[in-house]
Design a protein around this nucleic acid. Structure first.
Length: 269
DNA sequence: ATGGCGCATGGAATGCGA
């Protein structure tokens, strides 16, 4: 059986979090790590440090905002940038093939507040993503993992009872999430029993982490062919406890599957 | 009062995140 560990982490500035990232890679040794909110240009990407840690990287960054990367223990292949057919100056999506798995690393728009222009952009972005997965990516790559910061808490159980905001939990965002999942994906976290009040993001303010006042907005979705290969999915709260943490915690998915599974793609291409 | 925080830019105060 092949084993694979795939993780996602919104680092909220790769520059600030680089040392935490390197420590986390060393401690956890994932095969794949999807990163969001790099907040730096490609020329500032710390490729040498990451290579020294034993990882290859595909990345798509920009100044100040957004930016995504896929780190992997073997070189990412067939790297694509953005959602095909959706013109977007914001660097929010990168995809690559690693060990026969199509990895899609995404930083979904925040949306600010329902009714705003940014909210409309969020829904348009989600629509474009869903369309592309349905007619493009999933037919081409049956073994697909969609990981990242979705900026959507799919169900009430994913939200601390005291959360009063509309954003991240509104009906239209959740409906868009359901449509996305319905194109053939599964929320791997919910394949397993989880601790009560499991979240992946906690506001920096109000002592939110200490009070576990959070939301689960970082997800790892898998295509149907990978469902039975999932062995565990957990939130790793350890980095959130460090000095100067990201406000997000990593999510880790472990897979175990027969070697034939990774050859499915060859049959389809 | 989801505001308090943290990051980026730029060199103070503001925009943004979620």
């Amino acid at each position: 059986m092949f084993k694979m560990k795939i993780a996602t982490w919104n680092v909220n500035s790769l520059k600030v979090r680089l040392h935490q990232l390197l420590g986390w890679l060393d401690a956890n040794r994932p095969d794949v790590l999807c990163l969001q909110e790099l907040k730096l240009e490609d020329k500032a990407f710390p490729e040498a440090e990451i290579r020294a840690a034993g990882y290859y990287a595909a990345f798509s960054g920009q100044k100040t905002y957004n930016g995504v990367a896929i780190l992997a223990s073997s070189p990412p292949e067939d790297v694509t940038y953005g959602i095909p057919g959706f013109t977007d100056e914001q660097k929010r999506l990168i995809a690559a093939t690693i060990k026969g798995m199509r990895i899609v690393c995404s930083y979904f728009p925040n949306g600010q507040t329902p009714g705003s222009d940014k909210f409309a952009y969020k829904l348009a972005w989600l629509d474009a993503l869903t369309r592309w997965l349905k007619v493009g990516a999933l037919p081409m790559y049956p073994n697909l993992v969609l990981a990242g910061d979705f900026n959507i808490a799919p169900e009430a159980v994913d939200v601390h009872p005291e959360w009063k905001g509309e954003i991240l939990v509104s009906p239209s965002e959740r409906a868009a999430f359901r449509v996305l999942v319905a194109c053939g994906l599964t929320d791997s976290f919910r394949l397993f029993e989880q601790p009560e009040y499991s979240y992946s993001w906690w506001d920096y303010r109000m002592g939110a982490f200490r009070r576990n006042f959070g939301l689960r907005i970082d997800h790892i979705l898998v295509s149907q062919s990978l469902q039975d290969a999932c062995r565990a999915c957990v939130v790793d709260k350890a980095p959130r406890k460090l000095e100067r943490p990201s406000d997000h915690a990593p999510v880790i998915l472990e897979l175990s599957y027969p070697p034939e599974l990774s050859k499915i793609r060859e049959l389809h291409v």
